[in-house]
Design a protein around this nucleic acid. Structure first.
Lengths: 339, 339
DNA sequence: TATCAACACGAAACCGTTTTCGCTTATTGT
DNA sequence: ACAATAAGCGAAAACGGTTTCGTGTTGATA
């Protein structure tokens, strides 16, 4: 085991000062050709690499960005991470991922751990518990300390910072319009509680589309599930009590599960009933029939978020003047709707 | 924007030395009650938190662990990360995730970035390109520097370190045995090139089960796809040319796609043909019919890997004596096989 | 030959902690 | 009243770099 070599070691071996070594490695004009060559050769030979921690301490930049998300076993969030990684890595940054697991406390703990010098900025998506409580003090503290923060997807108006979202209302609107255009009259919505910013927006888009087409909004056709997890019983009850000819769901899982229930009843998709979901993941592509979905472009969101964050980090001059980028969703048409 | 407060700031305000402040905050016996209370009150008031970077530099421990994996938009790897996060967080560690995207170069670059002081140890799964090239010098360098390394799932014998794998051979063996037990005679295998350690082992288990049951191994029934991505055409050709009554696939996607092709031909699952895949992800659960799979217990693998790594990090005395933990896969029976 | 740049390098401060060691001052025992 | 001891605190080194500011030597110039 050959331990890491430091400037001090090189200086001792070559009988020069630490400053000389440091400058020589940076090809400083101050140092003679001879010395530079000697030092650089020695450094190469012993595979010298500067210690990141020491550099971080010196210039108060870690080249790390902290990502706090509610879950990772979710296609959408993994695509976001991938986008972040892509841009961050290209810019020489590392990504520290922390999971809140939809818990307020874990979100707070993780942010506090990272905020004490470990990272240059945050990218985060709010946990459902945080959105339900409406307590954003941990975010405010971070921004007040001057640590840049970019909120993605699940955001809040109560915090002043950069944001990247997709136009969820538009997505639901487009989807609903599509269903209406296919002659569907009894369009159901399966969503989650309104405290989730995205669910609220999607419900809004659904209503807007119906109103615009002069279709009555039947509240009984809106099923609000209280958690992100599957509540199979509620969905079953819902379909037993309501007769519908189209369903819009706020995620893939709700959609696929609903389709299966419907198929078991012998109802044909998309002939008798159409389905549209959110998130263009594996499930959508490989479901049977394959799913028509509102694609959220998570990877692009991640890239943009990383770009906004790194811009802030590297130009700390212009604080304030925060932006919200709104991405347009795309309707990916497959076999769960009529073509 | 209130900037972070340091020991120096507190010392200046309270007109004591930095050492006194440091000790007071650690409740040292050396410091008088009075002074301790004064300092602690002040620190609380101004929300003092020690700077992680400075502490890392001092005691050469970052409390970060580096995770390098080939991909994140894959259910199995996300469960591994989740397991790592779970244990690491409980032990006060952060997780730095880097993606190799199956590229050798990116794997090397990421490891070098992290190895210069940013992390206390590595958990990694080899990229396919690395396994194909068989070049493990970047791993050897890291271990020679005394940085603990734990390899998970995609491993190699050429590097001396702790490892966590599942018994892929056993998994494939169990699955194949199950198919044989259901009276299947023409069992196909859809896999990837053998340079991937896991694919090789799975192919081995498949062969072993057939041999053990005195069934002939027809090489034409083994389809090797050259990449992890879907090669739809090859799969279609394969089913056109071969008549089979059971299929074992090394991942979910191959399985689901194959099932769909088969269903289009009007062949019934599981009546006429059975399917078993690897990875117990969303696709398996929500496919139609739902998939019988070999569950890999990624979360448990992640937890164990994190535990092994942190043990090494915190007891750096006992180098050598490396262990390989082999997890047993589980067969999760659903509707793509006869019950 | 005295003077002055230019050149090449080193000393030291600094980033924010921790920790060892030594120095006052007050207290105790004799 | 004086030495020994303990209590309370500060100075300084250390972690591994970067950077500013000297300083000694050299060669050129007047």
């Amino acid at each position: 085991m050959k331990a890491k070599i430091t400037l001090k070691d090189i200086a001792r071996e070559l009988e020069v000062s630490i400053s000389t070594v440091s400058k020589a490695l940076k090809n400083s004009e101050e140092i003679s050709r001879d010395t530079k060559e000697k030092v650089q050769a020695f450094a190469k030979l012993y595979n010298y690499k500067p210690n990141n921690i020491a550099i971080s301490l010196k210039n108060k930049r870690t080249k790390n960005i902290g990502v706090v998300i509610p879950a990772i076993v979710h296609h959408f969030f993994t695509t976001v991470i991938r986008g972040i990684e892509k841009h961050a890595n290209a810019k020489g940054y590392n990504v520290i991922v922390c999971l809140s697991e939809e818990s307020f406390d874990r979100e707070v703990i993780n942010m506090e751990m990272l905020a004490n010098g470990s990272i240059d900025g945050f990218i985060m998506s709010l946990s459902s518990e945080t959105q339900r409580k409406g307590d954003y003090n941990h975010l405010k503290e971070v921004t007040e300390q001057g640590i840049p923060l970019v909120l993605v997807d699940r955001v809040t108006n109560e915090v002043d910072c950069d944001k990247v979202i997709i136009d969820d209302e538009l997505g639901a609107y487009m989807a609903t319009k599509k269903l209406i255009g296919q002659g569907r009259k009894k369009i159901a919505l399966i969503t989650t509680d309104d405290y989730l910013s995205v669910s609220k927006a999607r419900t809004g888009g659904y209503r807007k589309a119906l109103l615009e087409s002069n279709m009555e909004i039947d509240e009984k056709r809106i099923l609000k599930l209280s958690s992100m997890e599957m509540d199979e019983k509620s969905i079953e009850d819902f379909f037993n009590k309501n007769s519908v000819d189209a369903v819009l769901c706020v995620n893939e899982i709700f959609t696929v599960y609903s389709m299966r229930l419907i198929q078991k009843k012998g109802i044909r998709i998309p002939d008798d009933i159409s389905f549209i979901g959110f998130t263009d993941g594996l499930l959508s592509k490989y479901a049977n029939p394959s799913l028509t979905v509102v694609a959220q472009h998570g990877e692009k969101m991640g890239e943009i978020a990383a770009q906004m964050l790194i811009d802030r980090v590297e130009n700390e001059n212009d604080e304030g003047n925060y932006q919200t980028k709104i991405l347009e969703p795309t309707l990916v048409v497959r076999d769960s709707t009529i073509n």
